[in-house]
């Protein structure tokens, strides 16, 4: 029972290659996949599938959904590999498997690459190559465009990079229909516009962490006041966009009520963030918006799932 270790010094990222080559638990590898993000991806991709009412074998749809989730996890793993140095500097991310020394960077890289290639190939074989191409694009966009380039280069990092997180409904629809329609593009747009107020609310509270790691988040670059204004603008855009499925005919009464009330909640949260700028109330308002934004998106997609997946759709209007 031995392990081959070499006497090379710690690598350029500051990780000692002899530190823990054999210590990684299965749960650490699972954590590399960002399971909470995977749940969101599975959920939004599933909604992208059901709104198009596909005539597809449920087994193929299920395998496609699994591969979309694995692809998303793989991109999260590659993100953690690339960002291990900055993750080590932030309290929120310092306990992740690589900065904590439980998994070696190269192990994470190999794990992420194998899952990326595997998920794209299996999705292509199971459904079609349009969906596989879109999944590959999502992985590359998140791992390369966002993680390696945008994140450390511009305060618009999560605005542009948010496209990767918004793509799963489109990939899901492409997997079961072989095409992309306006419905899934609208779902993409909702997640895309939702991302900035969601992340910037957190960034307002964690701006010290991001500054320490040298990541140009909006509050560090443009200042908290400008960030608050932008949160309000994005929310003003998000609320009507969130209700647009009703106008386009694929959101029914349930969706109309939830998107209307949820939109009001988002607006109220954004205004609170804009108004309260000091001390504990400021922190509470920002974290309140951050938490509510997750609930808002969850409810929007749950309403569509209930309407299209469980027969609760009742059209609004005549």
């Amino acid at each position: 029972m031995s392990s081959l270790t070499n006497s090379l010094p710690a690598d350029a990222q500051g990780f000692n290659p002899t530190a823990s080559a054999a210590g990684g638990e299965v749960s650490d590898f699972f954590a590399l996949l960002k399971p909470r993000v995977m749940v969101l991806v599975i959920f939004t991709a599933l909604v992208g599938m059901v709104v198009s009412h596909p005539n597809v074998n449920p087994i193929i749809a299920g395998i496609s959904l699994l591969m979309i989730a694995v692809g998303a996890g793989a991109s999260g793993c590659l993100n953690m590999w690339w960002d291990a140095d900055v993750d080590a500097l932030m309290t929120r991310t310092a306990t992740r498997p690589i900065p904590a020394g439980r998994i070696l960077p190269n192990e994470a890289l190999a794990f992420g690459m194998v899952l990326s290639v595997g998920s794209v190939l299996i999705l292509g074989l199971a459904s079609n190559w349009l969906a596989a191409g879109l999944l590959a694009f999502t992985i590359v966009f998140y791992a390369v465009v966002y993680s390696m380039w945008l994140k450390r280069a511009t305060a618009q990092n999560i605005v542009i990079g948010g496209a990767a997180g918004a793509l799963p409904p489109i990939v899901g629809q492409a997997a079961v229909t072989g095409s992309v329609s306006l419905d899934s593009v609208i779902l993409f747009a909702i997640i895309f516009i939702w991302t900035p107020p969601h992340f910037w609310a957190l960034a307002l509270v964690k701006s010290g962490d991001y500054a320490k790691a040298g990541i140009p988040m909006m509050p560090n670059v443009a200042g908290p006041d400008s960030t608050r204004r932008q949160i309000v603008w994005y929310t003003l855009l998000l609320v009507p966009l969130g209700m647009s499925p009703v106008a386009l005919g694929f959101g029914g009464w349930l969706y109309a009520v939830i998107s209307g009330l949820g939109g009001l909640g988002m607006l109220a949260g954004a205004i609170q963030v804009f108004r309260l700028r000091e001390g504990e109330p400021e922190r509470r308002a920002a974290m309140g918006l951050f938490g509510f934004s997750i609930l808002y998106l969850l409810l929007l997609f749950a309403a569509l799932l209930a309407e299209h997946g469980f027969g609760l759709f009742r059209a609004v209007g005549v």
Partner: peptide, 23 residues
């Protein structure tokens, strides 16, 4: 080639490796 040395795995590392193999 860099010099390689053999290191005994700790019981925790052996257990972790076994779990990884099963996974």
């Amino acid at each position: 080639h860099p010099e390689f040395s053999v290191r005994q795995l700790t019981p925790a590392e052996v257990q972790a490796r076994r779990k990884r193999s099963i996974a």
